[in-house]
Computed example of a mutant assay.
Amino acid sequence: MCKSPLHNFLASLPKAEHHIHLEGSLEPELLFSLAAKNNITLPVSTDASFASPASLRKRYSAFANLDDFLAYYYIGMSVLLHAADFEALAYAYFAKAAAQNVRHAEVFFDAQAHTRRGVALETVVDSFKKAQVRAEKDFGVSSELIMCLLRHLPLSSALDTFGLARGKGYFRDGTLRGMGMDSSEVPFPPPMWTELYEAAREEGIRTTCHAGEEGPPGYVSQALDLLGVQRIDHGVRALVDGDDALVARLAASKTLLTMCPLSNVKLNCISSMSEFPLRRLLDAGVRFSINSDDPAYFGGYILENYCALQETFGLSIRDWEMIAKGAIMGSWCTEERIAKLLVEVEDVVEEWARQFEEQ
């Protein structure tokens, strides 16, 4: 818990999350439980970190870079085999998110990481959908599912997986709200994926792309110009190293950046929380949201990210109102849902603003 006087306000503030990998919410305890249930042997003989949930969590605190993290990320998801596993994973995230007052979540999953292990796409998607329905009923959390494709695999694999999802009607019926791309960034720049994104545009599918996490600001421009994405996941290098013209372009276009502060620090994309470009985002009027990325690996869900920024930058209630509303307005849910969530934010902000005025 942060020591800021605004902690309870941050906890109560209605939140929208747009950058959460469901596989990245696989806590070590659930990982070990599913490994035992599914007779999966974890590589403890070559990596002592897998001796226990505690030792694995300790290893997660010291990633050298993105690829170091991804090695553990892919080992972790190997324990997910059956429909019940995927549903349990997603529902556990929604329960945690609801406890931190996430009111709307747009969640990623890595389709190829499962289909290439022999798990059917419908097993993954239909199980996540069941968890979404349960979460809306149990917690009032609305959600959208976004299929991410993996940069480190060939374009042909991405096209095949995209075609499989399209053929099953998942985009047409709204089961999948959009398509994104993640995994190793630097060796696989946006121009490699123009054919994939052209196919998505032809189908009228909303798209996003991880860009500018470890890659240079130019990757953000390429994702916008060559891939035609409506959203940028991360984009931190564009705000730390990018020129004013790029920042102004992001602000003018109202392109949502899905920012992940704890992740950026854990993966050494920025040297410390103080380097996170929060003031530049706010001063330039760039629309962004604050997200947890892979919370089981990076030591914090969305509230912990909010608190880390508050302790570093000392934001006001009105600053947080701007952040919360910007995130909601950048969501891919219905206009009716957006309007309702904006009212919820206003109600909480006004309540807490009065409390501080009375002190």
Rank of each mutant, 00 (worst) to 15 (best):
T207C: 15
C209R: 13
M273W: 11
A296H: 12
N268H: 15
Q222S: 08
E195M: 06
A284L: 05
R231A: 00
G218Y: 06
D244V: 13
P190D: 05
L239V: 00
G285P: 00
H210F: 06
V240D: 00
L262V: 14
R280S: 12
I290V: 12
G215P: 02
V229S: 01
R237V: 12
L282F: 07
I232A: 03
C269H: 15
G204A: 10
S316D: 08
I205R: 12
D233R: 01
L226W: 09
L262T: 10
M259P: 11
A248Y: 01
L309H: 07
A251L: 09
F188C: 08
H210K: 01
P277E: 06
A251M: 08
L257C: 13
T312H: 07
R279T: 13
V265M: 09
R287D: 10
Y306E: 03
R177M: 12
S263N: 09
C260N: 14
E304D: 06
Y301G: 00
S274G: 11
I205S: 12
H210Q: 09
L315P: 06
P277G: 03
S183C: 14
R177S: 15
A223E: 03
L176Q: 11
I270Q: 09
T312S: 11
L278E: 10
R280K: 13
L239C: 00
M181N: 01
T312W: 01
T208V: 11
E275K: 14
S316E: 03
G218C: 04
D243F: 09
S183K: 06
P216E: 10
E202R: 15
A200G: 11
G204R: 13
D244I: 11
S271A: 15
F313V: 02
E203K: 14
A245M: 12
S263Q: 09
E311A: 07
